[in-house]
Design a binder for these strands. Structure first.
Length: 451
RNA sequence: AGAGAGGUGGCAGAGUGGUCGAAUGCGACGGUUUCGAAAACCGUUAUACCGGCAACGGUAUCGGGGGUUCGAAUCCCCCCUUCUCUACCA
């Protein structure tokens, strides 16, 4: 895969289809980190193959210095003006109109000064912010060097690759054969990429959603049902805006966006919050449909259920104290693996290299299942730790021991996205007379076999 | 959707142009008292940024944005939102 810096629609679309996660945030690094750990930042940017790191960091630090000078100057002028205003008030009260008018002269000067300083400050802050938005998150130390998917590290592989019978077919044939998912109908009522699930297909969808949610709840995640359209502020906080509006469906009349993943509304639950330490870690799960325009996607890998405009997904989100976030990430991966094991799907876990991982992530594991009839691995989940990168934009904090507020770490992963799971279940379990579903789904579905 | 009334600190609730970051009460935290607790009393109790080693000082924030003014929680405009009534609807 491409997707080096995550800024092109093309590479993002490729990376992110069902992996909730890489589509996500474009928040930013903190200026204080750039200032205090410049070397570490530059090394991290290099590992992510970000080309203009040194120049951008230098420019930001420069602008920040300018910003502080302006702030100081503005504050001093404003302080003097406030003081004069108080004096004028006192003079007016005592009837000394002439004395008051005399002070107003200076006040007018100061007003001009603060206005100039404020305007310039606004510009400088905007410039800083724009540069910060360009910088990707720093990779964790364990992230392998590399530019592309081939450089990803295979962490482990689980399960035997099934051998199919002679008449085996890819899922886009199987869904017609058993009449369980209908693309033609979806085209009629909406358009390409909006399939209609019918009969056992619809029941299988519902079964998977319930299975995933139950498993998440048992693993300690609290279920939430968020809105699936969000306002501009929410889409901005998780980083879809600005500059990825092309990937989201937009209702112009009310200026609302259809979510590309539950991560957007669920993470925004904690925007602008100082979370009491006893509520940490936050562990939420949510089932939602996800909508993606997938502008710029093409090619053979979009066939069938591999890439859709609307699909269902159960997402898990965690917000933790910084020292706990990597243990939390391991726990999320273990949870996802457990789901795949219960479904009996062969899978592998990859640690993404610096060039292939998402723009905003510090460490990402991809989980891929083997699709037997297509003969390839399909990404079904991706679990990431964003450290403070996203929290900085969200302003999601807690009060540390010293009483000082501190940014939290945010993480999320799909557990799981349905379409490719369905594809793998259909393909891997097909027999000459029907598709045998894994035992764990029988009670959820109300049947054990399709066809 | 139409009419009316509101949005103030963790909560409740004063404040309609001047030293108001904001009375008062509750809650919370620290202390005095107590064998311990309660009560009482004293104190503390927002966020961000700037300056400072620090103590501390400054600036901004009373739903959001803009305006008037020497000075705005308070006046004006726009937006968001809550409640009541009407209309509608699952």
């Amino acid at each position: 895969m491409l997707g080096h810096y995550g800024q092109t629609a093309k590479s993002d679309a490729r990376r992110s289809t069902f992996a909730a996660d890489s589509n996500n945030p474009r928040p930013m690094l903190q200026v204080s980190v750039l200032k205090e750990q410049t070397d570490r930042v530059l090394a991290g940017l290099a590992k992510k193959h970000y080309p203009t790191g040194p120049a951008d960091v230098a420019a930001i630090l420069d602008l920040d210095q300018r910003r502080r000078a302006l702030q100081t100057s503005h504050d001093a002028a404003q302080a003097e003006a406030n003081d004069l205003a108080r004096q004028i008030g006192a003079l007016m009260k005592s009837g000394d109109k002439a004395g008051a008018d005399a002070l107003k002269v200076r006040t007018t000067e100061l007003k001009q000064h603060t206005k100039t300083a404020t305007d310039e400050l606004t510009q400088v802050e905007l410039a800083i912010q724009q540069l910060l938005y360009k910088l990707p998150n720093l990779p964790h130390a364990s992230v392998p060097e590399g530019r592309a998917a081939a450089d990803n590290e295979l962490v482990r592989e689980h399960g035997a690759i099934p051998t199919l019978y002679a008449g085996a077919q890819p899922h886009w044939e199987l869904i017609k054969k058993y009449d369980i998912i209908d693309f033609e109908l979806g085209i009629k009522i909406t358009g390409a990429g909006f399939p209609v699930y019918k009969g056992q297909g619809a029941r299988l969808q519902r079964a998977l959603v319930n299975f995933f949610l139950d498993e998440a709840r048992e693993a300690g995640y609290t279920e939430v049902q968020p809105p699936i359209v969000v306002n501009e502020a929410s889409a901005t906080a998780t980083g879809q805006l600005p500059d990825k509006e092309g990937q989201m469906y937009h209702d112009a009349k009310d200026d609302l966006y259809l979510i590309p993943t539950a991560e957007v509304p669920v993470t925004n639950l904690y925007r602008d919050e100082i979370i009491p330490v006893e509520k940490l870690p936050i562990r939420n799960t949510a089932y939602t449909p996800c909508f993606r325009r997938e502008a710029g996607s093409w090619g053979a890998d979009v066939r069938g259920l591999n890439r859709l405009h609307q699909f269902d997904k159960v997402e898990i989100v965690q917000i933790t104290q910084p020292e706990n976030s990597y243990a939390a990430l391991d726990g999320m991966v273990a949870h996802i693996e457990n789901l795949l094991q219960k479904l009996g799907l062969p899978y592998r876990v990859l640690r993404l290299c610096g060039g292939d991982m998402g723009f905003t992530s510090a460490l990402t594991y991809d989980l891929e299942v083997w699709s037997a009839a297509q003969g390839r691995w399909l990404e079904v989940s991706s679990a990431s730790n964003f450290e403070t990168y996203q929290a900085n934009r969200l302003k999601c904090r807690y009060r540390a021991d010293g009483g000082k507020t501190q940014l939290l770490h945010t993480l999320n992963g799909s557990a799981l996205a349905l379409p490719r799971i369905v594809a793998a279940l259909l393909e891997n379990n097909q027999t000459a007379d029907g598709i045998e579903l894994p035992a764990v789904l029988h009670s959820y579905c109300g049947f054990s076999k399709i066809g």
